[in-house]
Design a binder for these strands. Structure first.
Length: 516
RNA sequence: GCCCCGUUCGUCUAGUCUGGUCUAGGACGCAAGAUUUUCAUUCUUGAAAUCAGGGGUUCAAAUCCCCUACGGGGUACCA
């Protein structure tokens, strides 16, 4: 079949977009682009009670940030407009069509009645289901006369329209990821297709829209697999089997620890975002962190998500979006759920952070410095970035690895002091300081030469006086950084310059001479 | 409860369709060594899965079949 590939991502605007939803969208996008097809954004807002303001905008902004582009849909337009289900009014006609064909029926049972029934069954340790076994005893157009039904409809009595599953029929469907799946219709309940509020449920709206929008493949989360027989039955009931899309049900994203599907609350509890962007709940004021605000690069998020449940079959792990499009295939999606791994997510970000140019990082870092009240230059910060970026996973790691280029240490790491600043180190450091002052004068205005000469001097000095290299060097480091870490000493001296170098060493002697 | 889906190193996974080349490969993490005067990086090496358990089929099973266990999902006038 040479049907044009058309897939859709169809979220409900009930809150921020979950990272699992992002992955579903990504797989749809990759699949569409791989086959030169269309990717559509449809908003499924048929549940008015769960509608959350701002959610739709959030979803659109998320994909913009991630670099996932839609060809049609809400915010873009297209020849199947509108793409917001609340603006589509054709669903009732289709539900009625099903009633005419004998595939659906009116039901007048109130939610309270059904609730009570469920409770009743529960006390008997049974499960109530509105299905082929119970519908004959309930209040619907199967048990009522045509006149009574007409009367009730005329009186404006609330009703729903339910699908009428046949008794004991095996419903077969093919899932592109799971293969053949079979379910017996007697076990399935007569799902509501059209609600008493005049809006369709997911099942009806989804099938009607997928058909009308000529969707070729439905790629969605595994939570939809149990209702897929209904959807397949719907296509058949409408006589649309020829144009029925192929189904692919994706494995779920699981919590990193323990069990269950990854949920909204897990993220901030476990210290990682579950949402692409930061979200502020307007009602509760609660804030959920986002990947963007946490410093993740969109390419890293995309790459990580792509490999969480799919693999290329090669040992390559780093992929650009175009490379992903090139190698993506539904066949290589795994069948089982995947636990989200924060550590690996950081590793991915590290990889992409390293690919950023020094200038790109420096530009953003200068902003952070400004917020700390530090004014630096692009030239200087670019040098700093080149020295420390490989130690960073995120932009936010920059400060912790480079603060000493911008401010002198106030405190000295006690452990390092204890370990290194012993014996006659105060005296040694004083002698070193004196010599460094001479070197500074000799290399006035040339920090590179100063750093170079100082390093040379230190090595000679240590050799001549038969001192412990680690001890002396680390005391100098302690004076300059305040801790036992940091980049090459000569690079530090070169960047902070002779004046700052000398004053830091001088201060360390004053502060630490009484410590020993 | 019932229905559906799944189960390979701690985690993500390759291998399963088309049994033998799998003494099960890679990545993250972990450990050790090297490099670095320090920390980090980088490099090298290593530990780590009796392929959930049991039973078949077969000359041969991680790979095919059955059962059990465990995990996940569904079971709304939510999506």
């Amino acid at each position: 079949m040479d049907r044009r590939i058309r897939v859709r991502f169809a979220p409900s605007p009930t809150g921020p977009l979950h990272i699992g939803g992002v992955r579903t969208a990504l797989y749809n996008y990759l699949f569409a682009k791989k086959h030169g097809g269309d990717f559509i954004l449809r908003i499924e807002d048929t549940d008015r009670t769960r509608f959350v303001e701002g959610a739709e905008e959030y979803i659109i902004e998320s994909f913009k940030w991630l670099g996932i582009k839609f060809d049609e849909g809400v915010g873009i337009g297209g020849r199947y407009e509108p793409y917001r289900q609340s603006e589509r009014t054709m669903y009732k006609d289709y539900a009625l069509q099903l009633i005419d064909k004998g595939w659906a029926y009116y039901a007048f049972d109130t939610p309270e009645e059904l609730d009570n029934l469920r409770k009743e069954y529960e006390t008997l340790k049974k499960n109530f289901q509105y299905d082929c076994n119970t519908r004959d005893n309930l209040r619907n157009s199967i048990t009522m006369s045509a006149e009574e039904v007409d009367e009730r409809l005329k009186n404006g009595e609330p009703y729903v329209i339910r699908f009428k599953f046949p008794k004991n029929a095996d419903i077969h469907l093919t899932d592109l990821i799971r293969g053949e799946v079979k379910m017996n219709s007697s076990l399935l309940d007569d799902k509501v297709l059209f609600k008493s509020d005049g809006l369709p449920t997911y099942h009806l709206a989804n099938v009607v829209d997928d058909y009308l929008m000529d969707i070729s493949h439905v790629i969605r989360g595994e939570e939809w697999l149990p209702s897929c027989p209904l959807h397949v039955s719907l296509y058949r009931a409408f006589g649309w089997e020829e144009r029925m899309p192929q189904f692919a049900h994706l494995p779920l994203l699981l919590k990193p620890e323990g069990n269950g599907k990854l949920s909204k609350r897990d993220g901030d509890r476990l210290g990682f975002p579950v949402f692409p962007l930061l979200w502020r709940d307007k009602k509760t004021g609660e804030i959920s962190s986002g990947y963007r605000e946490s410093g993740y690069l969109p390419q890293a998020v995309v790459n990580m998500l792509a490999l969480l449940g799919w693999n290329p079959g090669t040992e390559q792990e780093l992929f650009s979006m175009n490379e992903l499009i090139d190698v993506f295939s539904l066949e290589r999606i795994s069948k089982h759920g995947a636990k989200f791994d924060l550590v690996k997510a950081k590793w991915f970000n590290h990889q992409y952070f390293q690919q950023l140019s020094n200038e790109e990082i420096a530009t953003d870092y200068l902003e952070i410095l400004k917020q700390k009240g530090i004014n630096s230059t692009m030239e200087y910060t670019k040098e700093v970035v080149s020295l420390v970026k490989e130690r960073c996973d995120f932009l936010s790691d920059m400060w912790g690895n480079s603060y000493y280029f911008y401010q002198s240490p106030e405190n000295y790491d006690e452990k390092v002091v204890k370990k290194r600043w012993k014996d006659n180190m105060t005296e040694v450091m004083s002698q070193i300081l004196e010599q460094m002052q001479n070197i500074a004068i000799a290399n006035e205005g040339n920090n590179t030469a100063f750093a170079h000469s100082t390093e040379e001097f230190l090595l000679n000095y240590i050799g001549e006086n038969q001192l412990n290299m680690g001890q002396v060097m680390n005391c100098v480091r302690l004076a300059l950084v305040g801790e036992g870490k940091g980049v090459n000493l000569a690079d530090i001296m070169r960047l902070i310059g002779s004046k700052t170098t000398l004053s830091r060493i001088e201060r360390s002697i004053t502060v630490l001479e009484n410590e020993v």
